[in-house]
Write a protein that binds this DNA or RNA. Structure first.
Lengths: 330, 330
DNA sequence: ACTTTTTGGGTAATCGATTAACCAACAAAG
DNA sequence: CTTTGTTGGTTAATCGATTACCCAAAAAGT
C-alpha cells in the first residue's frame, strides 16, 4: 500500500521524474504527446503529489496560520470563516490556533507555526503588542482588528472611531443625556478608538464626559451584568448604554431585565459587532455592524499577495461600519 | 539568513548530524557530555527542527484535520476548541476545514488533508454517509455527533435518544399534551435519535403521536420562525415546543413573541445543545445540555491513540446529556 | 552543407531531517 | 591473552519532490 510517487509514474510512462514534475507544474518544456500519456497514468493510478516533499524542496507549504483569541466567539469565527473561504480556493490550508488570550500560548503557537513551515500568519490577537518572538521578521504577517503599533505589520480593521461616534450620536439624537459606555478594561486599540468616538460625539453635542458613566470590565457577559447591577445599586442615573461589544450589551440587558427597567423606554442600548445574538436578543439589539467577512477576506487576500510577492501591500485598511437599528433604540 | 540546520549544529559541536538527531529525539546512545554541549549550541543558535523535513522522513506530520460544517455555530466551535485544547499540548496542530455542508467541498478537503500528510481526521460532518473518497482507508478517523453507519469508524456522540426523551417527558410532566417537535428535515443520526426519544416519551405517557406537530425544517433560525408562524396561522393548537437545536428554539421564540404568546405560560419550550444564546435569550431557554468539551476531548484522545497505535479503540462512545432548566419551562 | 537555435527531456544535486549498518575503543570475563 | 560486550559515536541511504545543468536530435538560417 506504499504510495505512488512521482518516480513510479515516471517509470510507468517511460520518462524521467523531472519530466513528470515539469508537466505537473507547467514549467519547462515537454511535448503535448508525453503530457497526455503522463497525465493519463497519473489519473489511472490516482497519483497525488506529496505536499510534504514539495514543501521541503520549495520552502513553501501552501499553509497559513490563524491566531485567534477565542474561536467560540462568533465574531472571530466569522472572520476565520472568511479567511478560509478566500484561502482554500487559492490552494491554502489553514492552521487554527486558539490562544484564549494567553500570551505564552501565543508565543508558542508562533514558534510552532514557524517550525511547521507556514507561509504566513494572520493575527487576531488579544495582545496590545505582538510579541517580539513573533515570526514577523521571517514571515509575512497581517493583523486584523488589532493595531499592534508595529509599523512593519499590515493591519486590517474596522473604523472603530466612527463606530463609537455614530452609536453615541444616535443615542444623543434620541434624547439621551447620560450615556454609559461599557468597554474593555484592557487598552486594546479597537476599544480605545470606540471610546474616542464616544467622547468626540459627546463633545460635539456639548455633553460633558462623566467618569462615573465609563465602566471598564473584562469582556464577558456576566461582567457586564454585574457592572450594570452595580451602577444601578449605586444609584447612578443613566438613560442609555453604549456597549463596546454585543456580548457586553447582552449582559447589560440581562441586568436591566432583572431590575424591570424597560428597554428602550427607560434605557436605550447600542452594541457593537452585529453578531447573531444581537438579532435574537430581547429586545433585538441595535448595534454597530462590522463587516466580518470583508475583514477576513481582505486580510487573507493581502497575506496571499505578500506571500506571492505580488505587491508590497504596505498600507493599512480601515473598513467602514454602519448602524443597524433594532429595538433597543427607538 | 538561511536557517540553522541540524548539519550546522553538528558541525559546530564537532559531531555528526546523527548524534544531534539522537540527542534531540532521545534515541540511541550518546554521552551526557556531548549532550550538554550540543544542547547548548542548539540554544545559542536558537535551532528549531524543520518539521517538514522530519515529516517527510518519518511520515508523521503531527497534524490532524478537523472537518466541520460551520465553525460559526457555537456548538461546533466549542467542540473544535476542545479538540485543539487536547491536541496542541500533545504536539499536534490542527487544520480547520469548513464545509458549509457541501459534499463536494468535503471530498476536496479530504484529498487535501491526505496530500498535506495529516496523521488523522476528525469529522463533524453534516453528511449522513461519509463519502467513499474519504481518507478512512488510509488514515485514522473519528466522527463526532454523526454516525455514518460505517462500522470501521469510531463515533463519539451524545445520548441523543435520552435527550429527546427527557426533554419531552419534562414537558409532559409540566402538563403539556400537544408538543410540537421541530427538527432537521435531513435524516441525520442525532436528529433521528432525538425524534425517537420524543416518540418514546409520548408513548410512555399515553399521548398519541400527532403528525401535525412534527415539523421538519432546514436547520436555521428563520426557518424555525417561519415554521412556527405557519403552525399558528394554520390554527394548529399546541402547548409546548421541543426544538432539536437551541437556534431552532430561538427561532420559535421569535415567532411566539410576534404573536404575543406568553412563554412559558401559554407555550413551553425546550431546546438542545445548551450554547450561550440559550442562556441569554428572553426568556432564558430550558435546554438539553450536550457536553461539547468532552465530545471534542474524547474524540481527540481516541484519534491520537489510534495514531500512536496505543490501542485499537474500536468501541463507540455515547456521552450522557442532562436537562438544564431555565425560564421557558416552569 | 555547415552552423545555430529550438525542442524535448535526462542526470543528479538538493531540501533537512531520521536511521540502519557499521566500527573503534575500551572494559569485563574467561 | 583472547574473547565478548558495551559505549559513543560515524557514514550514507532515504523520504518525494524540484530544478540547475547538460545533451541529442530536429529545425532553421546562411
Amino acid at each position: 500500500m506504499s504510495n505512488i510517487t512521482i518516480k513510479k509514474i515516471a517509470e510507468l510512462a517511460g520518462v524521467s521524474s523531472a519530466t513528470v514534475s515539469r508537466i505537473l507544474n507547467n514549467t519547462g518544456r515537454y511535448s503535448e504527446e508525453t503530457k497526455e500519456r503522463v497525465l493519463e497514468i497519473i489519473r489511472d493510478y490516482n497519483y497525488r503529489t506529496n505536499v510534504v516533499a514539495k514543501s521541503l524542496r520549495t520552502n513553501k507549504s501552501k499553509t497559513i496560520g490563524v491566531i485567534v483569541p477565542d474561536i467560540t466567539n462568533e465574531f472571530f469565527a466569522n472572520i476565520v470563516l472568511a479567511i478560509e473561504n478566500y484561502s482554500v480556493p487559492n490552494g491554502y490550508s489553514i492552521f487554527i490556533c486558539n490562544t484564549s488570550e494567553d500570551h505564552e500560548k501565543e508565543k508558542m503557537f508562533v514558534r510552532d507555526l514557524e517550525a511547521k513551515g507556514v507561509d504566513g500568519i494572520i493575527y487576531l490577537s488579544g495582545n496590545k503588542q505582538i510579541p517580539e518572538q513573533t515570526t514577523s521578521k521571517h514571515l509575512p504577517t497581517v493583523c486584523i482588528d488589532r493595531n499592534p503599533g508595529n509599523k512593519e505589520i499590515v493591519v486590517v480593521e474596522s473604523d472603530n472611531f466612527s463606530g463609537g461616534f455614530i452609536a453615541t450620536e444616535e443615542l444623543i439624537q434620541q434624547g439621551c443625556k447620560r450615556i454609559v459606555i461599557i468597554k474593555d478594561e484592557r487598552d486594546v486599540s479597537p476599544m480605545a478608538e470606540r471610546y474616542r468616538g464616544y467622547r468626540e460625539a459627546l463633545q460635539k453635542h456639548g455633553i460633558p464626559l462623566d467618569e462615573n458613566l465609563v465602566v471598564n470590565v473584562k469582556v464577558d457577559v456576566h461582567e457586564a451584568t454585574k457592572a450594570v447591577q452595580h451602577l444601578i445599586s449605586r444609584g447612578t442615573a443613566f438613560d442609555a448604554i453604549f456597549a463596546c461589544t454585543d456580548w457586553l450589551a447582552i449582559g447589560a440587558i440581562n441586568a436591566l431585565h432583572q431590575h424591570q427597567i424597560l428597554i428602550p423606554d427607560e434605557v436605550k442600548i447600542i452594541g457593537f459587532d452585529n453578531i447573531s445574538v444581537a438579532q435574537h436578543s430581547y429586545p433585538p439589539l441595535t448595534t454597530v455592524e462590522q463587516d466580518k467577512t470583508k475583514l477576513g477576506e481582505i486580510a487573507a487576500q493581502i497575506l496571499l499577495d505578500m506571500i506571492d510577492q505580488k505587491k508590497p501591500q504596505k498600507q493599512n485598511i480601515v473598513l467602514p461600519v454602519s448602524l443597524v437599528k433594532r429595538n433597543t433604540t427607538l
